[in-house]
Structure formats: C-alpha cells, structure tokens
C-alpha cells in the first residue's frame, strides 16, 4: 500500500467544510437543533398537550407518567452505556422477564431478603456472559444479543415451566415496597430511577471509566492504541446493563407481585428507541444519561398525552415512529450539512 499518504485533507472533511461555508446560518441552526432538538421537541410537546388538556401538567399526572416509565427508564440507562460503547443490547427485554420470574419464585422459597441478591447475581451472570462474547471474543453484538434474547426467553420458560409466577401471600410481604411504596410522597420506582440515573450519569460523565466508554465507542482502535483495555470496558458496560435490568425486574416483580413469562417481551426495542430518541448514535461514542432520561420521558409523556386527549395507547406507536425517524434524520442532516441523503 504505497501511497496512502498523500493525504492532504480527506474528501469528506473538505466536503463538509465547503457546505459549512455555503450556509453558515443554516448549519448553525441545524447544529443547535441537533444538539438540543430533543429538548426543544420535549418542551413543545408538553406545551401542546397542556393546551389540549390542562390536566397534563397536574403533578399527580406527571408523577404517574414518570412512575410508569420507570421500568423502561431503568433499562434504558444501562443500554445507554452499551450503545455509547458502540454495541447493541437486544436481550434486555427477555432478561427482565427472567429476573422478574426468578425473584418472584425465590421470594416464596428463600424469602425476599435472599431472593433479591440471588436474582441480581443470576442476572449479572447473564450480563457477564454477553460481555464475554462481545467484549473478549469480539462477536457481533447484534447477533449475540439476538441469540441471547431467544436463549434467555427459553431459560425463563424452562425455569418457570411455562407457568405464571405469583407470590402466595401478596398482602403480607415487604417486598412490595420497590414497586408500590412511597418515600417523601414520591413513589419508590421513581426514586430508584432517579437515583440510578444520577449515579450512572456521574459514572459516565465524571469518572475515568466513563471517559473510556466514550473512547471505545468513538474509535475503538484509537482507544486500544491509547492503552485502554477495550474488552474490559465493553464487558463492564454489559454488566451495568444487566444490573439495570435486574433493578427493572425488581420493580416489575414488586409492583405486580406476580408475572407472566413474557412480561419484558418487546421492551428491548422500546428501550433502544428511547436511547436513540435521546440522541445516542448507534455507531457509538455519543449520548448521555441525561438525554436518555429525556428520551424515556418523551415516550412516556407522548403515551400519556395521547391518552389524555382521548386517543388510544397504540397511537403512540405511530407517533413514536415518526418522532424517532425525524430525530435521527435531523441529527444526521445537521452533521452532513444537507437535509437529503446523497445516495443516488
């Protein structure tokens, strides 16, 4: 490969430069929208829905929305780490079913105080397995977690024998506190969601580990060349994801005190939608916990807002679809400096 070298500035770079000069004002509006567009959209939504139905910003309603988003939200926090590190996790839905079923089953067998750590340990093992496959063996994360989605689903069914799992004495257990309890007038699931978001947000933004996650996702080769142990970072991201899933399973189990085997089915894609809506790139290296929280809340508020104006829950699917595509489209349009793709 002789002359890869006459690399004066590369094509793409100069192309971008040119278009920037052509429409500076347009580009800066675009950049602003790309950076803060999701917040702007969020605010517009809230204003719009509030006009349509003032009950929308009623504190009770807001709490209700956040509460019902908490399970999805907690899972999205973990997936944010995985996505920033440049991978995918499609297994969180069935993993959540798994932890819910396990903790409910063990609750009656060994008591809640032991059931909870046991469930966390088992869920983390699953996370570690995925982390090993993707991090150390460098297998494609889409296929690995797709396989794990199916495998964990099978594991759950095998574990439960296909039966629904219920706690025998639903009124006499303190276990319900995680899903149904309140502290300081705020539901516990919300507190858990916010506490986890704060903790993980700090880890991602303020610790050396967080910096390494961005580096590995942004340019894995350059990260390795800087002495970062890439496999270890990816592994840790999947552990964090599994931890979040365990927390979500705990809330889910505690809220209903009984569950089907398929309680988390399909959530992996909703979670991913929330993370993408928050502006994380599937290519890795970008996204924040704060933005993911916004993404989760947008999904929650859309659903709630549409219900309040009298539309069925499924209208939100269509609205979410449109919003996701618009959000990602505007994001990349701002980056490439033109609205339509250059694909011929």
């Amino acid at each position: 490969m002789a002359d890869v070298s006459d690399k004066r500035p590369a094509t793409s770079e100069t192309g971008r430069e040119d278009s920037k000069m052509a429409g500076l004002s347009k580009a800066s509006v675009g950049t602003f929208l790309a950076k803060q567009g999701i917040l702007v959209a969020f605010v517009l939504f809230i204003i719009g829905f509030t006009i349509a139905n003032p009950r929308f910003i009623d504190p009770d309603n807001v709490l209700g929305v956040v509460r019902s988003s908490a399970i999805l939200g907690v899972m999205a926090l973990g997936v944010t780490f995985v996505v920033i590190s440049g991978n995918l996790d499609l297994s969180v839905g069935s993993m959540m079913s798994f932890s819910t079923i396990v903790v409910l089953d063990l609750h009656d067998k060994i008591g809640p105080a032991l059931a909870i750590p046991a469930m966390f340990a088992m869920t983390l093992c699953l996370g570690a397995f995925i982390g090993f496959l993707v991090g150390y063996l460098r297998l494609n994360s889409l296929i690995v977690t797709l396989g794990m989605l199916s495998a964990i689903h099978g594991l759950t069914l095998t574990y439960s024998g296909g039966q629904n799992m219920d706690i025998a004495d639903k009124s006499g257990t303190w276990f319900s506190v995680f899903g149904q309890g309140e502290a300081l007038g705020i539901p516990v699931p919300i507190l858990m969601f916010l506490a986890l978001a704060a903790a993980l947000g700090v880890i991602l933004a303020k610790t050396p580990f967080g910096r390494k996650v961005y580096a590995v996702g942004g340019n894995g080769t350059a990260a390795t060349f800087s002495g970062i142990r890439r496999a270890r970072v990816v592994f840790a991201c999947y552990l964090i994801s599994a931890f979040c899933v365990a927390c979500a399973g705990l809330i889910q189990a505690s809220r209903s005190l009984g569950s089907q085997n398929t309680v988390g089915q399909g959530m992996e894609l909703e979670v991913l939608a929330a993370v993408i809506l928050g502006g994380a790139s599937l290519l890795g290296g970008s996204g924040t916990i704060f933005k993911t929280v916004i993404g989760v809340l947008i999904l929650g508020f859309i659903q709630n807002g549409l219900l309040l104006v009298g539309l069925q829950f499924y209208v939100q699917y269509v609205v979410t679809w449109i919003i996701i595509i618009l959000a990602v489209w505007l994001d990349i349009a701002a980056k490439r400096g033109r609205l339509w793709s250059p694909i011929a």
């Binding site: 580096a215 340019n219 800087s226």
Partner: peptide, 28 residues
C-alpha cells in the same frame, strides 16, 4: 483511525492514556 477519537475534545484525547492515573479519587 489509530491516533485520535475524532469526536472527542482536545483535552480528553490528550489525556486518554492516563485518565485513570491522573484521578486520585473516583472522579476524573
């Protein structure tokens, strides 16, 4: 492709190999 994480800022790129060593507590 090997030297820089192009999407990161100057400081973070420069201190990337020692980001852990520089921090005394848990934070960067």
């Amino acid at each position: 492709s090997q030297g820089l994480v192009l999407g990161m800022n100057c400081r973070d790129n420069m201190t990337l190999p020692q980001v852990g060593e520089l921090s005394s507590g848990p934070f960067t």
